[in-house]
């Protein structure tokens, strides 16, 4: 095994991540404004911006799903229990004792088991809940008259939408906090998502493959 600086986040994934950051933050500010939590944005503007941002994010998700499927990157997101206990144990105990993070980023898996599980829940439960309820919310007038007790269903949708939003806020808090864990500091953890490069342990075969076939993904070794 050898540590090399490898491009792990291609341009699209970085674009995807930061677009999501902007859109989700926009949706949070406008969404909680619509919910009545704050009055920083006028209700009408908030609704318009929220709708536009939501539609853009949906388009981005459709595009990224296509990307994940066609590039095979979806495999990065498959959950696994293998090593899960080590990661949990690290965050619960090890980190306080100055232990090293038990997970070593490898080429075919950028996420540790806990990350993978989190993204799995986000992608398969929380995000679908928020966009399905959101789309139904947005299109209420097309179906509202066809159901009995429409205002109850709208109430239910709105509250599910809101709960999903709070889950995403919760994720964001932990997500940001965890960037500070692990010795290298916040900046070091954010950097790969900007430059695309991160330190990865490669097997000899992987290194040989990258050097032969995808040399642009490898940073030349120093000294």
């Amino acid at each position: 095994m050898v540590k090399r600086i490898v491009k792990v986040y291609p341009r699209f994934e970085r674009f995807w991540h930061w677009s999501q950051v902007i859109l989700i933050l926009t949706l949070m500010v406008t969404g909680f404004g619509i919910n009545g939590l704050h009055g920083f944005v006028s209700f009408g503007t908030a609704v318009t911006v929220h709708t536009i941002a939501a539609l853009l994010l949906l388009a981005l998700w459709i595009f990224s799903t296509f990307w994940l499927v066609t590039t095979g990157t979806w495999r990065q997101f498959t959950p696994t229990l293998e090593g899960m206990m080590h990661v949990i144990f690290y965050y619960a105990v090890g980190v306080f004792k100055g232990k090293k993070h038990p997970y070593r980023k490898v080429l075919w898996r950028k996420h540790n088991p806990l990350q993978a599980a989190t993204y799995f829940v986000l992608k398969w439960i929380v995000f679908p809940v928020i966009w399905i309820t959101g789309l139904l919310y947005l299109t209420f007038n097309f179906w509202g008259s066809a159901v009995t007790d429409a205002s109850f269903w709208l109430w239910l949708l709105a509250n599910l939408h809101l709960l999903a939003a709070y889950v995403i806020v919760t994720f964001l808090i932990i997500h940001l906090y965890l960037l500070t864990v692990g010795g290298h500091g916040f900046g070091a953890h954010v950097k790969p998502m900007i430059t695309g490069y991160d330190e990865v342990e490669l097997t000899a075969e992987e290194e040989a493959y990258l050097e032969a076939d995808e040399p642009w993904r490898l940073k030349p070794q120093e000294g």
Partner: peptide, 17 residues
């Protein structure tokens, strides 16, 4: 929307955060 940010879902969300 916007009339009751302190309802059960709002409180549950706040607790979570």
């Amino acid at each position: 929307p916007g009339t009751d940010s302190m309802n059960w879902a709002g409180m549950l969300g706040r607790l979570m955060v």
